[in-house]
């Protein structure tokens, strides 16, 4: 009778089934692609090139690489939405009264957004490739850096989304808060424009934002520009992800039934 799949695999399967619908694909893939092509070329008139390490990137190359980081962050909204819906529609209790533990439930959400983050980062990379291929410098670090960014980014932002989903009661509140927070992360970061040349206050704000670190790591991978600063940013990402993940786990494991 039994198929012998690991409980976490079964939960991931279920998470993907309920999350992957047309609306999500539009939000997660089509919207970023349109943005890359439309904004990428529209702004080229204003922003001729962006100094990056030893290189000068053109704006489409800059924004499409930034979009990969943005996309990883976006995919973690899924985790918040899953938890939120599960609580609202009774599935949280139903799963916990089934053949699963809370730890498995939490981990399955992390893996789910990790998978979605990786796959959509891969898709954006493939689609954005024609835009940044001139500047691309793939090397031995490219794949490890992008994978590292996807995983730590998924955990970090997934934890933020989970924390928000456990703290809020009304569904309007949840949507407003989570969208505001993520919008703030998106626009106060180096995903869309470089820190160089921005007013000092804004440039500082960029570096209080984990998405900036995430995007920097992705760019370092794609444009072959691994430096001491990038290594430092990776440490910050890991530390941030660890702290936020333990807070999220604690909140989830205390969640009242």
């Amino acid at each position: 009778m039994e198929g012998n799949l690991h409980p976490i695999v079964r939960l991931i399967n279920r998470n993907l089934t309920i999350s992957l619908n047309m609306g999500f694909v539009i939000w997660q893939v089509i919207f970023p692609v349109i943005y890359i092509f439309v904004a990428g070329f529209a702004y080229t008139a204003l922003i001729h090139n962006v100094p990056f390490g030893q290189k000068n990137l053109d704006y489409p190359a800059f924004i499409s690489s930034g979009m990969i980081g943005f996309n990883i962050m976006n995919s973690t909204l899924i985790s918040g939405i899953i938890i939120w819906n599960d609580r609202r529609h009774g599935m949280f209790e139903q799963i916990l009264v089934g053949p699963f533990t809370r730890a498995q439930y939490i981990l399955s959400n992390v893996y789910t957004i990790g998978i979605i983050g990786l796959v959509s980062a891969g898709l954006i990379t493939a689609i954005g490739y024609p835009l940044f291929f001139k500047s691309v410098e793939f090397n031995i670090l490219t794949v490890p850096l992008v994978v590292f960014a996807s995983i730590t980014g998924a955990i970090l932002f997934g934890s933020i989304a989970s924390i928000i989903s456990t703290r809020l009661k009304s569904s309007e509140g949840f949507n407003v808060v989570i969208n505001t927070v993520f919008l703030f992360f998106a626009f106060v970061s180096t995903a869309f424009y470089p820190a160089e040349g921005a007013p000092p206050i804004l440039a500082t704000a960029f570096y209080l934002n984990p998405l900036t670190y995430l995007v920097d790591v992705v760019r370092a991978g794609i444009f072959g520009n691994f430096t001491g600063t990038v290594a430092y940013e990776m440490v910050v990402l890991v530390a941030g992800a660890a702290v936020l993940f333990s807070i999220a786990t604690k909140l989830l494991s205390k969640l009242e039934i």
Binding site: M1, G3, L5, R10, L11, N13, R14, T17, P99
Partner: peptide
């Protein structure tokens, strides 16, 4: 899907 979550094989 609920059956899948309980690890019931697909034919069953």
């Amino acid at each position: 899907k609920y059956g899948m979550m309980w690890d019931v094989d697909s034919k069953t």
